[in-house]
């Protein structure tokens, strides 16, 4: 009697969070999976079951291939540049007790700025070829003729990713730094007594200790790479001629410009699928590690 009363109280305390999350995330999420199997346009009452037709059409779509390629480029860029820079800076700050806090604060400033503002700053004052920094460099007449990188078919997506990486790298640095600082002192002492060089110290003492964190963040990067939306939509809206399209912008335009909610849902499910695969790999890896 008493325990059941207690349990009721616990459920009551969990209820606000669960109700909000279930009504905003879970139920519409299930609706999306269901909609991806229909030809629903998003507002009419008509909704026919079409099986996997949306997926079949999607996998043959040229823009889907461009988008997928761009998401993969995005992932490769984010798994290398911010990871290397973030780790490097974390190591450089590790032994600097005095400057650490202030440098950490400076590096974090880009991370706390709104995507809207960051994107508009880069678009206007840096990338703009008629009145921005690029224009100024071109006017110097030093033999450079830079055009707007955002309208470049080949490198547009990299120009967009660069803005997001400028915003994002310090997040990795903060987490790496926090993890590095938890390396057991006795291991470090022992390695130093053996006369280990810094690279040896890093690969044999630090890295094994923070392996878990590095993996977790890498999986996170993979998941988020397939969800990238804000900077692409703000800087290029997938243009020119869909060359910077990513899955998220493709889904967005399918839903709101083409009123093809079935297709938009199918793209969303595919996006989530990549995240799910990444999560499963991560759980597998950690479980194997625990068994060993």
């Amino acid at each position: 009697m008493r325990t059941s009363l207690r349990k009721k109280a616990y459920i009551l305390l969990l209820l606000p969070a669960l109700v909000i999350s279930v009504s905003v995330v879970l139920i519409p999420g299930i609706q999306t999976i269901w909609s991806s199997l229909t030809d629903w346009n998003g507002f009419s009452a008509e909704k026919h079951f079409v099986g996997l037709a949306n997926y079949v059409e999607l996998f043959q779509d040229r823009y889907f291939h461009i988008a997928l390629k761009n998401n993969i480029i995005w992932m490769v860029l984010f798994l290398t540049i911010p990871v290397v820079v973030g780790m490097g800076m974390a190591l450089l700050l590790l032994y600097r007790k005095k400057g650490r806090n202030i440098l950490q604060m400076i590096f974090l400033i880009p991370y706390v700025l709104a995507p809207v503002v960051t994107a508009m700053i880069f678009k206007n004052i840096i990338y703009n070829p008629t009145s921005g920094l690029l224009h100024f460099i071109n006017e110097l007449n030093i033999g450079l003729d830079l055009s707007n990188p955002l309208t470049n078919r080949q490198f547009g997506i990299i120009a967009v990713a660069a803005v997001d990486m400028w915003h994002f790298w310090s997040y990795l640095m903060i987490i790496y730094l926090a993890a590095l600082r938890q390396t057991p002192q006795d291991q470090l002492e022992a390695a130093r007594l053996d006369g280990a060089s810094f690279p040896q110290l890093f690969f044999h003492v630090y890295l094994p200790n923070i392996k878990q964190t590095v993996w977790l963040l890498s999986i996170m990067i993979v998941i988020f790479s397939f969800l990238a939306f804000d900077y692409v939509n703000l800087l290029t809206q997938g243009g020119p001629a869909h060359y910077t399209e990513v899955l998220a912008t493709l889904a967005y335009t399918s839903a709101f410009s083409q009123q093809d909610l079935g297709m938009a849902s199918a793209i969303s499910v595919v996006m989530s699928g990549f995240g799910l695969i990444a999560s499963v790999i991560y759980i597998r890896l950690t479980m194997r590690e625990e068994r060993e």
Binding site: V25, P28, G29, T32, A248
Partner: peptide, 23 residues
């Protein structure tokens, strides 16, 4: 409940955005 919240953390906005808009 814990697993649910952990999973909800990595769900993309696009997975629930469109039906939510319709509703």
């Amino acid at each position: 409940v814990q697993v649910y919240f952990l999973m909800a953390m990595t769900v993309p906005v696009q997975l629930f955005l469109f039906p939510l808009y319709a509703t």
